[in-house]
Simulated assay, not measured.
Amino acid sequence: MRAGRGSQRIILAAWLALPTLLSGPLLADPVPERIEVFVAPEQAGQVSGQGAIEARYPGLPIQVFDLGAAAHFEDQLSEGLSADPATAQAQVRQRLQALGPEIEARLREAFGGLVRADQLGIERLPAVVFDDGQAVVYGVTDLPTALSHYRRWRDGP
């Protein structure tokens, strides 16, 4: 059985429109591969919208770095140290040894954000970084707002 000329046009139109239909949502909703958020200690509680982003894009890695974590860790280590430098040094060594196997994780948590911010060339805080530095949104702690800025950048003028 042979299709009529009218139905051939409809099939041809559908085939021609298929690439546009398939690529449309992808272009309209660019999703980053990774989001990293860098905040000062006083901004740590201001990061918002992470749950909404995670719900919409399950599996999207989002990491928040409080760049005050290193100072907080150092404060904990130095609390109540002796005024004598040699004794203080021994006390710090003892405290670090007492952390045992968790020392590596604690150091990474405390100083990892500072190292990563330096690697990415973060200039000021807060900063939301997309795709390992491909785009940075400064001055925003609301992740959906930052994602909106990212999308406008990706979509171009």
Rank of each mutant, 00 (worst) to 15 (best):
E74I: 13
R116S: 10
D75R: 13
Q94H: 12
E104V: 15
T87K: 14
R116L: 01
V115S: 05
D131T: 08
Q89T: 09
L114K: 02
L77W: 05
D132H: 14
S82P: 00
P58C: 07
L67M: 14
L147Y: 09
L120Q: 01
D66F: 06
V115K: 08
I62V: 15
A117P: 02
L96K: 10
A83F: 09
L120K: 02
T87D: 15
G121H: 02
R95N: 08
Q91S: 08
L125K: 05
G100H: 11
A86M: 11
I103A: 12
T141I: 09
Q97H: 13
L125Y: 11
A70I: 05
D75M: 06
S78V: 06
V64Y: 04
G80Q: 04
G100Q: 09
V128H: 03
S78N: 13
A117N: 02
Q94D: 08
T141A: 02
V115T: 10
I103L: 15
H149E: 15
H72M: 12
F130W: 04
T141M: 07
E79K: 13
R116G: 00
V129A: 11
E79M: 12
V92T: 11
Y57T: 13
L96M: 15
T141D: 03
Q119K: 08
V137Y: 00
P144K: 01
D132P: 07
F73E: 10
A88H: 09
Q97P: 00
G100E: 04
E109M: 07
D118M: 03
G68D: 10
R116F: 04
P58H: 03
T141E: 05
A146C: 01
P58L: 03
R95H: 02
Q63L: 15
V92H: 03
L67K: 11
P61T: 09
A71H: 14
Y138M: 02
S78K: 14
D142K: 01
G80F: 10
F111E: 04
T145Y: 11
Q97D: 12
G112S: 04
E109W: 10
R93C: 03
G113A: 01
L107P: 07
D75T: 12
A127K: 05
L107S: 03
L67S: 11
D66N: 10
I62T: 10
E102M: 07
D131G: 06
Q97S: 11
F130H: 02
T141C: 03
A71C: 07
R95K: 15
Q89F: 09
I122F: 06
L107K: 05
D131L: 05
I122W: 03
L143W: 14
R106M: 03
G112H: 12
V128D: 06
R95V: 01
L147P: 06
G121I: 01
V129H: 07
A117V: 04
A135E: 10
S82D: 15
A110T: 06
A135F: 12
R95Y: 03
R116T: 00
P101F: 15
G80N: 12
R56P: 04
L114T: 12
R93M: 12
L67N: 05
R116I: 00
G133P: 01
Y57H: 15
G121W: 06
E79R: 05
H149L: 13
L81M: 04
E102S: 13
V128L: 03
I122M: 03
E109V: 00
A88G: 10
H149C: 10
H72W: 06
R93H: 14
G59A: 11
L96T: 02
L81A: 00
Y138P: 00
E104I: 11
R124G: 08
A71E: 15
A117W: 00
P85N: 11
